[in-house]
């Protein structure tokens, strides 16, 4: 179970965070789920912490920093909308922005 992950997503590419709600140890903050940002940088491969948390051997997956504007996250309530937020998101939480 250590096959490599899918091809890296380019810096600057738009990505959406999955809007799913599984139980257990997960690493995607709730407030970012379903939100769209852009890849800020690729942080390389690391063992999937959502698997490591259960003491089992983990697949190597890619970790990214994703940048959002406050407007991306909080909508028109953001004050000010142009402030930004970066979060570390593992590839298993990302989907292309064209997916519905």
């Amino acid at each position: 179970m250590t096959e490599t992950s899918s091809p890296a997503i380019a810096t600057g590419a738009p990505v959406r965070l999955k809007s799913i709600a599984p139980p257990g140890h997960v690493r995607c903050p709730w407030y970012l789920r379903g939100k769209t940002g852009v890849i800020e940088r690729d942080l390389g491969l690391t063992g999937n912490p959502e698997t490591l948390a259960y003491g089992v051997e983990a697949q190597q997956i890619r970790l990214y920093r994703v940048r959002f504007t406050m407007k991306d996250i909080w909508g028109d309530d953001a004050d000010p909308a142009s402030d930004t937020l970066d979060a570390e998101i593992f590839e298993n939480w990302l989907e292309p922005t064209h997916a519905s």
């Binding site: 809007s19 799913i20 709600a21 599984p22 139980p23 709730w30 970012l32 379903g34 939100k35």
Partner: peptide
């Protein structure tokens, strides 16, 4: 399971 980030079902403390 689908959800929207506005509904809190499944959100952990």
């Amino acid at each position: 399971m689908t959800n929207s980030a506005t509904a809190d079902a499944g959100r952990r403390w």
